[in-house]
């Protein structure tokens, strides 16, 4: 049992890691909206934004763990181990710490469900992942209500900026949400590639299962503004037409 371990540096660490975690979770939520709204494809890859979302969330969880552990270990504020998980058990700023505990529980649920993503149903994962919005709102309220730094000056400006960024991200998540035909939304780089003049879609007649799939390979020639084919080793032997994406392959990232 840790008793009477106190140091101003523990308290400073608590405050600093809390602020950093708030900024990182702002970044994570914003990147998550980027992934969900299909940002990327030309300048930055969509998969790169997805990887960034996953990686930054791991860093944010580390800072959150530091924030929580230093709070409990420091005896300057009377907060027990149980208060990490169970709300309304802290004698220090009961409401603010309770909201922080709720945020921590929600973040834990989102994090664990994402680690188990291959094992659980995708619908379950999505349902849990929606709670990240509530988790961020609770974390923001926790940061403001605790108020050591969040009530004045630069700390208040930081909290307000995080709130503004995520509020805009939430609005845009709704307004700019992809339609079912995701590839041709305004966010897609495929919009830039003009559709060929063709009378109709390929007919849907049943083909024998061994017949080649109706790959739209005839379009490359039918497109008048198609760029000159740059011969790269990966596309030269490919049976597919040139992709509208800029692909970094081969080599490079590996």
């Amino acid at each position: 049992m840790m008793t009477a371990l106190t140091s101003p540096y523990l308290w400073y660490t608590t405050r600093a890691t809390g602020m950093v975690a708030l900024v990182l979770f702002t970044l994570v939520v914003t990147l998550g909206t980027f992934v969900a709204n299909r940002v990327g494809g030309s300048i930055v890859g969509r998969f790169e934004l997805n990887e960034l979302h996953r990686s930054v969330s791991m860093v944010a969880v580390v800072f959150l763990a530091l924030h929580v552990i230093t709070t409990v270990v420091d005896s300057f504020v009377a907060t027990g181990w149980i208060s990490i998980i169970v709300p309304f058990t802290s004698s220090y700023k009961r409401l603010a710490v309770a909201i922080g505990a709720i945020a921590f529980d929600l973040i834990l649920a989102v994090w664990v469900s994402s680690l188990l993503k291959v094992r659980i149903k995708n619908a379950s994962w999505r349902f849990i992942h929606w709670f990240s919005w509530l988790a961020f709102a609770s974390a923001l309220a926790h940061g403001f209500l605790t108020g050591t730094d969040g009530h004045h000056g630069a700390g208040l400006a930081l909290v307000a900026a995080c709130a503004l960024v995520v509020a805009l991200a939430a609005i845009w998540r709704y307004v700019g949400r992809p339609t079912r035909a995701a590839g041709r939304t305004a966010l897609s780089p495929l919009v830039a590639a003009p559709l060929p003049e063709r009378p109709a879609r390929p007919s849907r007649r049943l083909a024998p299962p061994d017949a080649p799939r109706p790959v739209p390979s005839a379009r490359g020639g039918a497109r008048p503004s198609a760029p000159a084919p740059r011969d790269s080793p990966s596309t030269a032997s490919s049976p597919f037409p040139r992709s509208p994406f800029k692909t970094p392959k081969p080599g490079g990232r590996r």
């Binding site: 890859g45 035909a181 995701a182 590839g183 495929l190 739209p216 597919f240």
Partner: peptide, 23 residues
């Protein structure tokens, strides 16, 4: 749901149709 990540990660195996779904 037609995210298109597979096409970016494995362009030699996956092409996308005009709606963004993989072929």
């Amino acid at each position: 749901d037609g995210y298109g990540h597979c096409h970016e990660l494995a362009p030699e195996l996956v092409n996308v149709d005009e709606w963004g779904y993989p072929i």
